[in-house]
């Protein structure tokens, strides 16, 4: 494979996702047919902050999951820094961290520092060094005081921040986040947004929070598996409002 080039950003080349018919569906119903949940799209994302907005079921998660190879495109290709998300999936995942909506779905080990260490297993073979690196990763976000705590005893906001540390611990250069604030209260949402603002990584996130989306440098509006608007935040949010509340684009 060619040397990865961060300047190439995240690219979709006619990437589409088609799901096979549901074998148990009633013949003739929508589920009994092959369904395109993402129509072929071509994009290059180089902006530091990219938001994806759209209705429930419009295809935001589908789009995001393509970026680190959690889903494969049925047609076309997706590349990150020139690396193909199917062929070079391991290399891609070392560059792209993926943050879920529910941090509990993401945290594997019961103690905070152990969970961060899990992400570092591949890069730090030696135990003491791994522990040290995990503590440093927590300290970068001011979370060192949580190191010995159980992930089950943390508040939702703390959990989401710990998940973020775990996801970025191995030095990932791109963060993909699927509705990271949906389960958080107002205060924790504000906190996570501030943390996102300070991240040196490129961040691509889906959200239903339009204020959060407004902070992005570029916003994609997704509707029924198509990118129907792509551009500056204000205009994108207006387009989404018109779309959602009637009146057409």
């Amino acid at each position: 494979m060619d040397a990865p080039a961060p300047s190439e950003g995240v690219c979709f080349h006619e990437a589409a996702v088609v799901v096979p018919p549901d074998p148990g569906a009633v013949p003739g119903s929508a589920e009994a047919r092959e369904r395109t949940i993402l129509h072929p799209c071509t994009l290059t994302l180089r902006e530091r902050r990219v938001a994806v907005i759209g209705a429930n079921g419009s295809g935001k998660s589908t789009l995001l999951r393509l970026i680190n190879g959690l889903s494969r495109p049925s047609a076309g290709a997706v590349t990150v820094h020139g690396l193909d998300t199917v062929r070079d999936v391991h290399a891609v995942r070392r560059r792209v961290g993926f943050l879920f909506t529910d941090p509990l779905a993401q945290l594997i080990m019961p103690i905070v520092v152990e969970d961060v260490e899990l992400s570092l297993k591949a890069t730090h073979r030696e135990r003491a060094a791994r522990r040290q690196a995990a503590l440093e990763a927590l300290a970068r976000f001011g979370l060192e005081h949580l190191a010995a705590r159980s992930v089950y005893d943390l508040s939702g906001g703390e959990r989401q921040l710990v998940a973020l540390v775990s996801v970025l611990a191995a030095g990932q250069q791109v963060l993909v986040a699927d509705e990271p604030t949906t389960l958080l209260d107002l205060r924790n949402t504000a906190k996570l947004r501030r943390v996102f603002e300070g991240l040196p990584q490129q961040v691509i996130y889906a959200t239903h929070d339009l204020d959060f989306a407004a902070e992005a440098d570029r916003v994609l509006v997704v509707d029924e598996g198509r990118i129907v608007f792509d551009g500056e935040a204000r205009a994108a949010i207006d387009a989404y409002r018109r779309l959602a509340l009637g009146g057409g684009t």
Binding site: H90, R93, F98, F100, A105, I108
Partner: peptide, 16 residues
């Protein structure tokens, strides 16, 4: 979801 979480974090790729 656990499978997704492990895959997303590249945890299962360590052997390489």
């Amino acid at each position: 979801r656990t499978g997704d979480a492990l895959a997303a974090r590249g945890v299962m790729d360590q052997s390489e």
